[in-house]
Structure formats: structure tokens, C-alpha cells
Computed example of a mutant assay.
Amino acid sequence: MAKAARKTSTGTDQSNGQIQPKTARGEATRKAILSAAERVIGERGFNEASIGHITSEAGVAQGTFYIYFKSKDEVFSELVLEMGRLVRRALSEATQNIENRLDAEKAGLTAFLEFIRAHPDLYRIIQEALFVDPEAYHAYYHTFAEGYRSGLEAAVKAGQIKPGDADTRAWALMGISRSLGERAVIWGDKTPVEDVVETAHDLIVNGLKP
């Protein structure tokens, strides 16, 4: 039986260990802390970033942090979840009116690379999550893989792509996006997104065979 939410003295609800603001002001403060944590941890790395750095960046008292998060680890895990939510939303919006799977692949890759170039700190956090929070890191990629696999299976049934192992294909296509994202954010590649996507999409559609 699920535990009932417990109202705290700070105007928040606490359910299953997660503290949720109940007012617009509280939600704005929580978002400010998350946004500051994104910048601070993305720039400094998890070990070098402190709660003091985060609250200073957010412009709130250090004690305010603990109203919404129990620890730096918890805010880090929330940022990994946030990255997943935001990326899935960006991909969904970019591909929602595209019926052909191959066209959707191109639009999705474009949306992903544009997103991570606009949010480099979040992308660095995902990279670091492998060591800081492996469980969140695994969940991030497995969630994407499940959705990707379902989309590929549907495209096979619709005759848009040839039959094949949808799971391996999903991870391979995710690997292309991940590596190109890493090259852009971690290694600072400045190749225009449209040029990167044209080359990568040609590889996806036509392979390497002459």
C-alpha cells in the first residue's frame, strides 16, 4: 500500500522520500536549485562541486537546499532524470508528425545534437553518472533503448525498414548519437549539426557498402 504524502512545515509534500513543492514559489525555488546544480556540477564535476557552490549560484541560503534535497547525490540523480525527460520530450516534438521511420531518425538525431549543444552541462552530468550513480545511468539508457526498440519493431511491421534484431539496432543507433554528442560537447567539435547529421544519416540508411 502506497504511503500517503506527508505535509511538511515548509509547504512541501514528502512522499516516498521525495520532497515536492506545493506552491508556485516553492517550485520556482526547487527549479532554481536544479538549474544551478546543472551549471555547477556540469562545469566543476561532481566531486569538486559543493552544496555551497550550488546555493550560491542559485542565490538561496544553504539551508534552503535541504528543504528540497537531502544531499548532493540526490540532486545529481534528479538531474539525470531531468536530462532523460527533456531529451525524450525534444525527440518526441521533433518527430511527432513524421510517419516514415528513416525520416524520423534524421529528425531525431538533429534534435538530440541541437539539445546537447544547448545543454552541455547536462550532457557532462550524464557522462559522469556512470561513476557517480550507475543505477541512474543504466536507467537513463535502458529507458531510451526500450522506446527505441518499440519504434523500430513498428517500422519493420509497417515495411519502412528491413527486418533485424531491434534491440541490437536500438543500442547501435543510440551509440551513434552518444558518440557524436560526446565529440561535440566533450571534445568541442564545431562541425555544423546539419553536416554531421547528413553524414551520419547516410551511414544509417546506406551503410558503408560502395
Rank of each mutant, 00 (worst) to 15 (best):
Ser179Val: 08
Gly147Trp: 08
Gly151Val: 10
Ala2Lys: 14
His201Phe: 06
Arg101Thr: 07
Ser9Lys: 11
Phe76Ser: 05
Gly207Leu: 05
Arg88Lys: 04
Glu146Thr: 06
Asp195Cys: 05
Thr64Tyr: 07
Glu182Lys: 00
Thr191Glu: 06
His138Leu: 09
Ala49Phe: 08
Glu78Leu: 03
Gln96Lys: 10
Asp189Pro: 01
Arg124Gly: 09
Ala28Asp: 13
Arg101Cys: 11
Phe131Lys: 13
Glu74Lys: 14
Lys7Pro: 07
Trp187Arg: 08
Arg124Leu: 13
Ala2Ile: 15
Val132Asn: 11
His138Glu: 07
Lys157Trp: 06
Pro21Gln: 00
Glu194Lys: 12
Glu93Trp: 02
Ile125His: 04
Gly45Ser: 07
Gly175Arg: 08
Gly175Lys: 08
Arg101Gly: 06
Val185Lys: 01
Val196Thr: 14
Tyr68Thr: 03
Ala104Glu: 12
Glu105Asn: 13
Gly52Ala: 09
Val156Cys: 07
Val40Trp: 02
Arg117Ser: 11
Leu79Val: 07
Lys31Glu: 06
Ala49Lys: 05
Ser92Phe: 11
Asp121Gln: 12
Glu194Gly: 05
Asp195Leu: 14
Ile19Ser: 06
Tyr66Lys: 07
Lys190His: 10
Ile116Leu: 14
Ile98Asp: 00
Pro163Val: 09
Gly147Asp: 04
Asp13Ile: 06
Lys209Asp: 13
Asp165Met: 05
Gln18Lys: 15
Gly164Pro: 00
